[in-house]
Simulated assay, not measured.
Amino acid sequence: MTVNFTRLAGWALIVGTLVAAFGYLAANLLAPGSGDEVFRYHLWPLFEGIAVGGDVIIALGLPVVLTFARRAPKLHVVGYAGVFAALVMLNIGEGVMEGFVKPYLVDHGGIPTEQPSGFAVFEGVALLCLVVGAICLGVAVLRDRTLPWWIGVALLVSCLLGALGLPGRWFLLPDDVFFAALFAIGVHAVRGRSEVATAGIVESAAV
Protein backbone atom coordinates (compact mmCIF):
# COMPACT_ATOMS: atom_id res chain seq x y z
CA MET A 1 0.00 0.00 0.00
CA THR A 2 1.37 3.40 -1.02
CA VAL A 3 1.31 6.08 1.68
CA ASN A 4 0.67 9.65 0.57
CA PHE A 5 2.96 11.49 2.98
CA THR A 6 1.85 14.90 1.72
CA ARG A 7 -1.78 14.24 2.64
CA LEU A 8 -0.71 12.61 5.90
CA ALA A 9 1.33 15.69 6.84
CA GLY A 10 -1.59 17.89 5.81
CA TRP A 11 -3.89 16.01 8.17
CA ALA A 12 -1.27 16.44 10.91
CA LEU A 13 -1.42 20.21 10.45
CA ILE A 14 -5.22 20.20 10.47
CA VAL A 15 -5.55 18.03 13.58
CA GLY A 16 -2.60 19.61 15.38
CA THR A 17 -3.78 23.20 14.96
CA LEU A 18 -7.31 22.35 16.11
CA VAL A 19 -6.08 20.45 19.16
CA ALA A 20 -3.50 23.09 20.12
CA ALA A 21 -5.92 25.99 19.65
CA PHE A 22 -8.53 24.23 21.78
CA GLY A 23 -6.01 23.56 24.55
CA TYR A 24 -4.73 27.13 24.72
CA LEU A 25 -8.19 28.69 24.51
CA ALA A 26 -9.65 26.37 27.16
CA ALA A 27 -6.74 26.90 29.56
CA ASN A 28 -6.64 30.67 29.27
CA LEU A 29 -10.35 31.44 28.94
CA LEU A 30 -11.61 29.09 31.64
CA ALA A 31 -8.89 29.62 34.25
CA PRO A 32 -10.07 32.07 36.94
CA GLY A 33 -7.92 34.93 38.11
CA SER A 34 -4.80 36.28 36.46
CA GLY A 35 -1.05 36.09 36.76
CA ASP A 36 0.30 33.14 38.73
CA GLU A 37 -3.20 32.37 40.01
CA VAL A 38 -4.12 30.71 36.71
CA PHE A 39 -1.67 27.92 37.53
CA ARG A 40 -3.86 26.93 40.49
CA TYR A 41 -6.73 26.05 38.14
CA HIS A 42 -7.17 22.30 38.53
CA LEU A 43 -7.68 21.72 34.78
CA TRP A 44 -4.75 23.90 33.71
CA PRO A 45 -2.25 21.00 33.31
CA LEU A 46 -4.84 19.00 31.32
CA PHE A 47 -5.58 21.78 28.84
CA GLU A 48 -1.93 22.81 28.53
CA GLY A 49 -1.01 19.16 27.99
CA ILE A 50 -3.58 18.97 25.19
CA ALA A 51 -2.10 22.10 23.63
CA VAL A 52 1.45 20.72 23.80
CA GLY A 53 0.22 17.47 22.24
CA GLY A 54 -1.28 19.49 19.40
CA ASP A 55 2.02 21.32 18.95
CA VAL A 56 3.85 18.00 18.61
CA ILE A 57 1.41 16.92 15.89
CA ILE A 58 1.94 20.25 14.10
CA ALA A 59 5.71 19.74 14.23
CA LEU A 60 5.29 16.33 12.58
CA GLY A 61 3.22 17.80 9.73
CA LEU A 62 5.08 21.08 9.27
CA PRO A 63 7.50 19.81 6.56
CA VAL A 64 4.54 19.77 4.15
CA VAL A 65 4.99 23.54 3.71
CA LEU A 66 8.09 22.75 1.64
CA THR A 67 5.99 20.97 -0.99
CA PHE A 68 4.49 24.33 -1.96
CA ALA A 69 7.86 25.85 -2.83
CA ARG A 70 8.46 26.89 -6.43
CA ARG A 71 9.76 30.40 -7.04
CA ALA A 72 11.12 30.96 -3.53
CA PRO A 73 12.49 27.63 -2.26
CA LYS A 74 15.12 29.27 -0.03
CA LEU A 75 12.52 31.44 1.68
CA HIS A 76 10.39 28.35 2.24
CA VAL A 77 13.31 26.50 3.84
CA VAL A 78 14.25 29.43 6.11
CA GLY A 79 10.59 29.92 7.00
CA TYR A 80 10.12 26.24 7.82
CA ALA A 81 13.32 26.09 9.90
CA GLY A 82 12.42 29.21 11.88
CA VAL A 83 8.84 28.16 12.58
CA PHE A 84 9.90 24.63 13.50
CA ALA A 85 12.58 25.88 15.91
CA ALA A 86 10.15 28.30 17.58
CA LEU A 87 7.48 25.60 17.80
CA VAL A 88 9.86 23.22 19.57
CA MET A 89 11.47 25.82 21.82
CA LEU A 90 8.44 27.93 22.78
CA ASN A 91 5.24 25.96 22.31
CA ILE A 92 6.63 22.57 23.31
CA GLY A 93 9.66 23.33 25.49
CA GLU A 94 8.30 26.32 27.40
CA GLY A 95 4.78 24.88 27.16
CA VAL A 96 5.79 21.91 29.30
CA MET A 97 7.12 24.28 31.93
CA GLU A 98 3.94 26.40 31.82
CA GLY A 99 1.69 23.36 31.94
CA PHE A 100 3.34 21.19 34.56
CA VAL A 101 6.29 22.85 36.33
CA LYS A 102 4.69 26.16 37.29
CA PRO A 103 1.46 24.59 38.62
CA TYR A 104 3.66 22.46 40.90
CA LEU A 105 5.81 25.38 42.02
CA VAL A 106 2.87 27.67 42.76
CA ASP A 107 1.80 25.34 45.58
CA HIS A 108 5.31 24.42 46.70
CA GLY A 109 7.05 27.60 47.65
CA GLY A 110 5.84 29.79 44.83
CA ILE A 111 7.16 30.59 41.37
CA PRO A 112 10.57 32.35 41.55
CA THR A 113 10.49 35.98 40.46
CA GLU A 114 13.88 35.67 38.78
CA GLN A 115 14.20 33.58 35.62
CA PRO A 116 16.80 30.79 35.44
CA SER A 117 20.21 31.83 34.17
CA GLY A 118 20.24 31.98 30.37
CA PHE A 119 16.49 31.56 30.00
CA ALA A 120 16.07 35.09 28.64
CA VAL A 121 18.57 34.26 25.90
CA PHE A 122 16.70 31.04 25.15
CA GLU A 123 13.42 32.95 24.79
CA GLY A 124 15.08 35.66 22.72
CA VAL A 125 16.49 33.14 20.23
CA ALA A 126 13.13 31.35 20.02
CA LEU A 127 11.24 34.60 19.39
CA LEU A 128 13.77 35.61 16.74
CA CYS A 129 13.29 32.26 15.02
CA LEU A 130 9.52 32.75 15.12
CA VAL A 131 9.64 36.25 13.64
CA VAL A 132 12.15 35.37 10.91
CA GLY A 133 10.41 32.09 10.14
CA ALA A 134 6.88 33.52 9.96
CA ILE A 135 7.96 36.50 7.85
CA CYS A 136 10.01 34.38 5.42
CA LEU A 137 7.25 31.80 5.10
CA GLY A 138 4.62 34.51 4.61
CA VAL A 139 6.66 36.24 1.90
CA ALA A 140 7.39 32.87 0.25
CA VAL A 141 3.66 32.08 0.07
CA LEU A 142 2.96 35.49 -1.48
CA ARG A 143 5.75 35.10 -4.04
CA ASP A 144 5.04 31.51 -5.06
CA ARG A 145 1.26 31.85 -5.39
CA THR A 146 0.83 28.10 -4.93
CA LEU A 147 -1.37 28.90 -1.92
CA PRO A 148 -4.05 31.59 -1.45
CA TRP A 149 -2.52 35.00 -0.85
CA TRP A 150 -4.38 35.47 2.43
CA ILE A 151 -2.37 32.64 4.03
CA GLY A 152 0.82 34.62 3.50
CA VAL A 153 -0.85 37.76 4.83
CA ALA A 154 -2.10 35.86 7.90
CA LEU A 155 1.44 34.70 8.69
CA LEU A 156 2.72 38.28 8.48
CA VAL A 157 -0.21 39.67 10.48
CA SER A 158 0.42 37.14 13.26
CA CYS A 159 3.89 38.63 13.71
CA LEU A 160 2.50 42.17 13.77
CA LEU A 161 -0.14 41.28 16.35
CA GLY A 162 2.47 39.51 18.47
CA ALA A 163 4.70 42.59 18.40
CA LEU A 164 1.81 44.80 19.58
CA GLY A 165 1.56 42.89 22.87
CA LEU A 166 -2.23 42.72 23.01
CA PRO A 167 -3.72 43.10 26.52
CA GLY A 168 -5.66 40.52 28.53
CA ARG A 169 -6.91 37.39 26.83
CA TRP A 170 -6.35 39.03 23.44
CA PHE A 171 -2.72 37.87 23.64
CA LEU A 172 -3.99 34.56 22.20
CA LEU A 173 -5.02 36.22 18.91
CA PRO A 174 -1.57 36.11 17.21
CA ASP A 175 -1.30 32.36 17.88
CA ASP A 176 -4.83 31.77 16.62
CA VAL A 177 -4.14 33.66 13.39
CA PHE A 178 -0.92 31.69 12.94
CA PHE A 179 -2.70 28.38 13.59
CA ALA A 180 -5.41 29.37 11.10
CA ALA A 181 -2.75 29.85 8.41
CA LEU A 182 -1.18 26.46 9.16
CA PHE A 183 -4.65 24.86 9.21
CA ALA A 184 -5.33 26.26 5.73
CA ILE A 185 -1.99 24.94 4.45
CA GLY A 186 -2.95 21.53 5.80
CA VAL A 187 -6.31 21.67 4.03
CA HIS A 188 -4.65 22.47 0.70
CA ALA A 189 -2.12 19.67 1.22
CA VAL A 190 -4.92 17.17 1.87
CA ARG A 191 -6.75 18.33 -1.26
CA GLY A 192 -3.61 17.74 -3.31
CA ARG A 193 -2.98 21.38 -4.15
CA SER A 194 0.75 20.89 -3.52
CA GLU A 195 1.07 18.55 -6.50
CA VAL A 196 1.38 21.52 -8.86
CA ALA A 197 4.16 23.02 -6.75
CA THR A 198 5.98 19.70 -6.47
CA ALA A 199 5.79 19.19 -10.21
CA GLY A 200 7.25 22.68 -10.71
CA ILE A 201 10.21 21.87 -8.49
CA VAL A 202 10.88 18.62 -10.34
CA GLU A 203 10.74 20.40 -13.71
CA SER A 204 13.10 23.12 -12.51
CA ALA A 205 15.54 20.50 -11.21
CA ALA A 206 15.40 18.64 -14.51
CA VAL A 207 16.30 21.80 -16.42
Score class of each variant (00 low, 15 high):
Leu62Ile: 04
Pro73Val: 13
Ile14Gln: 03
Leu25Lys: 04
Leu166Lys: 10
Pro112Glu: 07
Arg7Ile: 13
Cys136Ile: 06
Asp36Asn: 11
Asp175Glu: 12
Pro73Thr: 09
Leu172Tyr: 09
Ile135Leu: 05
Ala180Trp: 07
Thr113Asn: 10
Trp44Leu: 08
Glu98Trp: 08
Leu75Pro: 14
Leu128Asp: 09
Trp11Met: 12
Leu62Pro: 04
Met89Ala: 08
Gly99Met: 01
Ala126Lys: 00
Thr67Phe: 08
Thr113Tyr: 08
Ala181Val: 14
Asp176Asn: 13
Leu46Gln: 06
Ala26Lys: 02
Asn4Tyr: 07
Arg40Met: 12
Leu66Gly: 01
His42Gly: 15
Leu130Gln: 03
Pro103Met: 02
Arg143Ala: 14
Glu48Pro: 10
Phe22Gly: 08
Asn91Phe: 13
Pro32Lys: 02
Cys129Arg: 00
Val202Ala: 15
Gly186Arg: 02
Leu87His: 01
Val177Leu: 06
Gly138Tyr: 05
Tyr104Lys: 09
Leu164Thr: 12
Leu182Gln: 07
Met89Arg: 01
Gly49Glu: 02
Ala140Gln: 04
Glu123Ile: 12
Ala21Pro: 15
Val3Asp: 11
Leu161Met: 13
Ala31Gln: 04
Leu155Ile: 12
Leu105Arg: 07
Pro45Gly: 02
Leu13Tyr: 08
Ala197Val: 12
Ala51Glu: 05
Arg191Trp: 08
His76Asp: 10
Leu62Ser: 01
His42Ile: 15
Ala51Asp: 05
Val3Ile: 15
Trp44Lys: 03
Ala59Phe: 07
Thr113Ala: 13
Ile92Glu: 00
Cys136Trp: 01
Asn4His: 11
Ala26Asp: 04
Glu98Gly: 09
Phe84Tyr: 12
Arg71Phe: 15
Ala81Tyr: 05
Ala180His: 05
Asp107Lys: 15
Ile14Asp: 03
Leu182Met: 14
Asp55Asn: 09
Cys129Phe: 00
Asn4Trp: 09
Gly23Lys: 01
Met97Gln: 14
Ile185Glu: 00
Ala59Gln: 10
Ile201His: 11
Cys136Pro: 13
Phe100Arg: 02
Arg145Gln: 15
Gly10Ser: 10
Val157Asn: 01
Ala26Gln: 04
Val153Arg: 00
Val88Ser: 01
Leu90Glu: 06
Leu30Tyr: 11
Val157Leu: 12
Phe183Cys: 05
Pro112Gln: 04
Leu66Cys: 06
Ala9Phe: 15
Val38Leu: 04
Ala199Asn: 13
Leu137Thr: 05
Gly82Met: 00
Cys136Ser: 15
Trp150Lys: 10
Gly124Pro: 09
Leu8Phe: 11
Pro32Phe: 07
Ala120Leu: 13
Val38Ala: 02
Leu160Asp: 07
Ala184Leu: 14
Arg169Gly: 11
Ala59Leu: 13
Val125Ile: 14
Ala27Lys: 04
Leu87Met: 10
Gly35Lys: 03
Gly33Phe: 14
Ser204Gln: 13
Ala85Ser: 12
Ile14Trp: 02
Ala197Pro: 13
Leu60Arg: 01
Tyr24Met: 10
Leu13Gly: 06
Gly165Cys: 04
Gly186Ala: 06
Phe22Ser: 08
